[in-house]
């Protein structure tokens, strides 16, 4: 474990907590893409499938973190699609998730480190996570704005994988550890946030709201 991975995971936890708080406190999921949250839930379930296959004692934090990610993302989907369904902005959350899931699944079957079920699921989860934020960014571009709290969520969500890139550089240099698939997907994922990061740093930090087109 290194500082980059630690802060990356903390940033990821913060993002999940910010979104849950926003929906729970405002009792509304306006401005939140349910499809992105569904895709994230699929990512966690397919990536941490080992938790279900052979029950592991929850002695180490990693297992606990995996369970937190899975339960929090499923609970977020429950809030969006059931509890606060009336506030779900379905018309603007219109990016076709199939256009993300099918290519990720296909690519996972073509480019992977080992052709076995668990590894393919892990690879699918990595590829899907790289593009899972697209429906959310698409929704913001359709509505033309993002609530400040949603911007903070996106900043934390984007920072998590950006910090993981620093973690991979660290591990390459000190542990000569390389996980090419995760690195390439992580770089793509972070690049997708660049436009948002620019808007966040130039606007939200100064107390303004993000309004598109910028």
């Amino acid at each position: 474990m290194n500082i980059f991975r630690l802060f990356g995971d903390l940033s990821h936890l913060a993002a999940i907590a910010i979104l849950l708080l926003k929906i729970w406190k405002t009792r509304s999921c306006a401005g939140v893409s349910g499809k992105t949250q569904l895709l994230f839930a699929v990512c966690f379930i397919t990536r941490y499938i080992d938790l279900f296959l052979h029950f592991v004692s929850l002695y180490n934090t990693e297992k606990v973190m995996k369970l937190i990610y899975i339960s929090a993302s499923v609970f977020t989907c429950y809030l969006i699609f059931f509890k606060f369904k009336a506030t779900y902005d379905g018309n603007h959350d219109s990016m076709r998730a199939e256009f993300l899931i099918v290519p990720a699944a296909g690519l996972a079957c073509l480019i992977n480190t080992k052709f076995d079920a668990i590894e393919i699921l892990w690879t699918f989860s990595i590829y899907l996570e790289a593009v899972a934020i697209l429906p959310q960014l698409f929704l913001i571009s359709k509505t033309g704005e993002a609530e400040t709290i949603t911007s903070h969520y996106l900043f934390a969500q984007g920072s998590y994988r950006a910090l993981y890139i620093l973690n991979w550089i660290y591990r390459y240099h000190y542990e000569s550890h390389v996980d090419t698939i995760a690195i390439v997907a992580g770089v793509v994922q972070t690049i997708l946030y660049c436009d948002f990061f620019y808007l966040y740093i130039t606007k939200v930090v100064k107390g303004q709201k993000i309004v598109l087109p910028a």
Binding site: D9, H12, K66, Y69, W122, Y164, N167, H177, D179, A182
Partner: peptide
């Protein structure tokens, strides 16, 4: 060994 091939990150 498969151990270090295992993906050890979240």
């Amino acid at each position: 060994s498969p151990a270090d091939e295992k993906h050890d990150e979240l």
